[in-house]
Amino acid sequence: MIDYDKTKAWRSGEVRHTYTTRDTILYALGLGVGSDPMDEQQLRLVYEKDLAILPTMAAVLASPGSWMRDRTELGIDFLKLVHGEQGLVIHQPLPVAGSLVGESRVTHIVDKGEGKGAVMHVEKTLKDAQSGALLATTEQVLFLRGDGGFSQRRGGDAPAPASPAVPESAPDVVLEMPIRPEAALIYRLSGDLNPLHADPAVAGKAGFPRPILHGLATWGMAGRAVVQAFCGQQPSHLRALRARLTSPVYPGETLVFDGWLREPGEVAFRVRVKERDVVVLNNGQAKLVAE
């Protein structure tokens, strides 16, 4: 069972990450950018001439790795861990290449009760390695299915406020985003080498008929859709993004992005799989720079 005090006190220390334009291009390719090589707006995300970076790349930069699996004294049941929600705030635009310092920490551990699991929030800050300027803050929310009931011994934090539901009205924008069959094999080269996303045998043991797409790839594709639909194709205009990951996605499927402009600078969204009519991202929120 999770040790609340030890886990809440965990700090990654400084994680230094130097990335190049090649890494920035590879990340965009993993999200399906470049499917139309004649589309100039896609090309500027995958071609070094006037290259632009997708802000969601912050989620894969200077990450602390598999610390929950490696730090066995924390008591986290890693095999029953599920990525439940992902958030991002951009404080200053990310450079297309550079050196960053990431520092991660656990901010909340919420006990849902014996047999009901726990919820853990992990915050990561990204700073420029030279100037120390804060560039981005990410938050990963994890559902620890095997760790409920720990507060009977000690500790436990109050639940975070629930994200607002998407509107019931028809969306203002609907975009279809086909997922390449090899998408997970490309995306994993941005850092997440979990064989669940590449090895059919591993996927089968986990209960899936074939390897699934990374949740952060689905989330990143939603960010790309927000940029396309509401940011005038300017990635730097996306300043915050958050969504719940509600169901797995398979490479080769088609994502459908539903977006609502709630007021200037604020967008609500969800993402569905067209072929199965399943919502895979929900309660989505994005904040934009004022035009």
Rank of each mutant, 00 (worst) to 15 (best):
V46K: 07
D172N: 04
F269V: 03
T21P: 00
A118S: 13
L134Q: 12
L94E: 10
H214A: 04
G156Q: 10
A286L: 01
G113A: 05
C231E: 09
Y19P: 00
V60P: 02
L81E: 06
W219D: 00
Q41I: 05
V280H: 05
C231N: 06
L135Y: 03
L54A: 01
P64H: 14
G207S: 07
Q130L: 13
A28I: 02
E114I: 02
K124L: 15
H197D: 07
D147N: 15
L88S: 06
V202N: 02
W10I: 00
G102I: 11
A206E: 14
T125F: 08
E85I: 03
V141H: 11
L81N: 09
S12I: 04
V173N: 00
E40I: 11
G146E: 13
V106F: 13
A222G: 04
Y4N: 05
H17N: 13
K8Y: 06
A222P: 03
P159S: 08
G30W: 04
C231S: 09
A240M: 12
M221P: 05
M221R: 14
G132H: 08
D258T: 11
R22D: 10
L185W: 02
G223V: 03
E253F: 00
A97W: 08
W260Q: 10
P195K: 06
G65V: 02
I186F: 04
L142S: 15
A183G: 03
P167N: 11
R262I: 15
G191W: 07
